[in-house]
């Protein structure tokens, strides 16, 4: 009797970990400590950078996955972020009492309801957007860019029609205001919340992508969509699902970003899209892990540079992008080979 153990998956050669790219952020954080000088400033800057990075990740992850899977780029993604943020108003109006209540569970519940409503709204919109705007223009990048820009213009104007054209001010729930002081370092409470939610989403996405059959299909679809189709799976449905999920994630990002800015404007999503695109380029088109690393990298660098050399901070994102592309022209973790 032969030993079947040799053919179990456990003994398959595992893909090699790309340590150089994975260690980029920790190394950057360690290198920044002596440069910044004081440990308390470093903690504040790092926490702010991580929170910002997590929010960018939330907004960018869906977009990069959609690109990787179906070679579709949605330049109107930013408007989902705005709509997610505005959808909060549906909740914040009726439940204003919850926001002012001095009780953590009630505040957390409010945030949860906001997130659920925003994700539901943007998911539904994503379904419509995919069908009406994007479906007719598969396989043509030029038309995708144009038509999604057009969709964005219309949707932005629709926000004006529904919620008015002037910026809307919102208030953070009571428990998330102010900062936690650890020693000399002050960390804003809301940033801790943002980091926690970002980590949960990243962990959830990693689990789904790496440990479930659905994730297997998605990853296979990114590698080779024709093959997945040939094996009898309906990649179209898979794609619609991913598009809707990506839109919902943009809605979630919009809630976090809206609370962070505390002012809602129809253009807020488009403003942050520049960062999102930089992150996607840095991470490698189609890679969720790369998107995570890229988001943290961009946000941390922006914070450290803003502290060390404020003038340089204006172009730090571009510099990071240029350096990464010089090192790896396809981004940190290239996935889609098209």
């Amino acid at each position: 009797m032969t030993d079947l153990g040799a053919t179990t998956p456990a003994s398959l050669p595992a893909p090699r970990r790309d340590w150089a790219a994975l260690l980029l952020c920790p190394v950057l954080m360690a290198a920044a400590l002596p440069l910044v000088g004081s440990a308390s400033s470093w903690v504040t800057l790092t926490a702010a950078g991580l929170a910002m990075g997590m929010m960018i990740f939330l907004m960018a992850s869906g977009l990069t996955l959609v690109f990787g899977l179906m070679d579709v780029i949605n330049f109107g993604h930013g408007v989902f972020i705005s709509i997610g943020a505005y959808a909060m108003l549906l909740v914040l109006g009726p439940l204003a009492g919850w926001a002012e209540a001095d009780s953590l569970p009630l505040n957390l519940a409010l945030l949860a309801v906001c997130i659920v409503v925003a994700m539901a709204v943007t998911a539904a919109l994503g379904l419509v957007f995919e069908r009406v705007i994007i479906r007719p223009v598969y396989r043509s990048h030029l038309k995708q860019i144009l038509v999604t820009m057009g969709g964005m213009i219309v949707a932005e104007q629709a926000i004006h029609v529904v919620w008015g054209a002037s910026p809307v001010a919102i208030r953070l729930p009571e428990a998330f205001r102010g900062a936690i002081v650890i020693g000399d370092a002050a960390v804003e409470r809301y940033r801790v919340v943002a980091v926690a939610i970002g980590l949960v989403v990243f962990a959830g996405m990693s689990l789904v992508l790496n440990r479930t059959r659905l994730g297997l299909l998605i990853r296979a679809g990114v590698e080779n969509p024709e093959m997945v189709e040939a094996l009898g799976y309906r990649i179209r449905r898979l794609f619609v699902g991913v598009f809707v999920a990506g839109s919902a994630l943009a809605g979630l990002g919009g809630v976090m970003w809206g609370f962070y800015r505390q002012t809602l404007t129809a253009g807020m999503g488009m403003e942050v899209m520049v960062l999102v695109f930089i992150v996607i380029i840095i991470g490698g088109l189609g890679s969720v892990g790369g998107c995570f690393v890229g988001s943290l990298l961009v946000a941390l660098v922006a914070n450290y540079v803003g502290f060390l050399a404020p003038k340089l901070a204006l172009v730090s994102n571009i510099l990071v992008m240029a350096l990464v592309l010089a090192w790896r022209p396809q981004g940190l973790f290239p996935v889609a080979r098209r």
């Binding site: 780029i73 860019i145 520049v274 695109f277 380029i281 571009i318």
Partner: peptide
């Protein structure tokens, strides 16, 4: 083309 669109957007905003 897609890279070019994104990179020009980033450069223009900078």
């Amino acid at each position: 083309a897609i890279f070019f669109a994104m990179i020009t957007l980033a450069v223009a905003s900078a």
